[in-house]
Design a protein around this nucleic acid. Structure first.
Lengths: 123, 123
DNA sequence: CCGTATCCACGATGATACTG
DNA sequence: CAGTATCATCGTGGATACGG
């Protein structure tokens, strides 16, 4: 068996898995949400950092880079000193936000049920 | 600062984060999908394992335990030798499936765009 | 057949310090 | 201000073996 055979066999057929790998990372959904709320305005790096409690500079940078690479977010640099960098959802990112909004609604409506189920399991 | 202060400060207010932590695990969405397609019928452990390519016995077990604890899946044991264990989506699990279906649709419609954006970034 | 226990590898995240 | 580099850490997932 080739080294890649086991891992590649079922993955390519599952775009959902790949989507979840992206939005499942710790800071992605919050970042997208903030950018969506600000849209169509841009948001600066420092603003994002302030509005995402607990995110480190590195992880916000990594998260935004991924979103930009994926075409979900656009990046604009003001060539000043010091530089200002602005981020904004692309149309593709905005369409993802719609899907994420459905998840948020479900979470707000039903996570209490999930919590209750967990408490009942403990007994 | 109390030991829990940093981690607890922003988490409780975010049910979405907690939902993503659950459905973001590697095998959860596929398991829910298969159980949803079979509903209202039950599916046996061995059947699930066969229908989820690449899942290990341990991870399927862990995944199902989580789903049961969360009240999303019900578990029924046939007291035979050897035992047979059957799983089925609960109504709560079925409602989650509706939300996941939205994600799947987005993935199927748009992950190609994401892939293309990545290819263009490489250049 | 189904589940658990153990050990281990790897990636994601975080702390910190440094650069343009 | 924004981003990069480095190192340490932790959780997830996988291999394997064993138990009920």
């Amino acid at each position: 068996m080739t080294p890649s055979a086991r891992g590649d066999l079922f993955d390519p057929a599952c775009p959902t898995r790949r989507l979840l790998d992206r939005i499942g990372t710790k800071w992605t959904s919050m970042t997208v949400k903030i950018l969506a709320e600000a849209a169509p305005d841009e948001v600066r790096f420092a603003d994002l950092r302030r509005r995402i409690p607990g995110v480190s500079q590195k992880m916000l940078s990594v998260t935004l880079q991924s979103l930009v690479r994926d075409g979900l977010v656009s990046r604009r640099v003001e060539a000043t000193v010091p530089p200002r960098v602005h981020y904004r959802l692309t149309p593709l990112g905005a369409s993802l936000e719609s899907a994420l909004a459905v998840l948020r609604t479900w979470a707000e409506e039903h996570m209490a049920d999930v919590d209750q189920a967990n408490q009942e399991s403990e007994r």
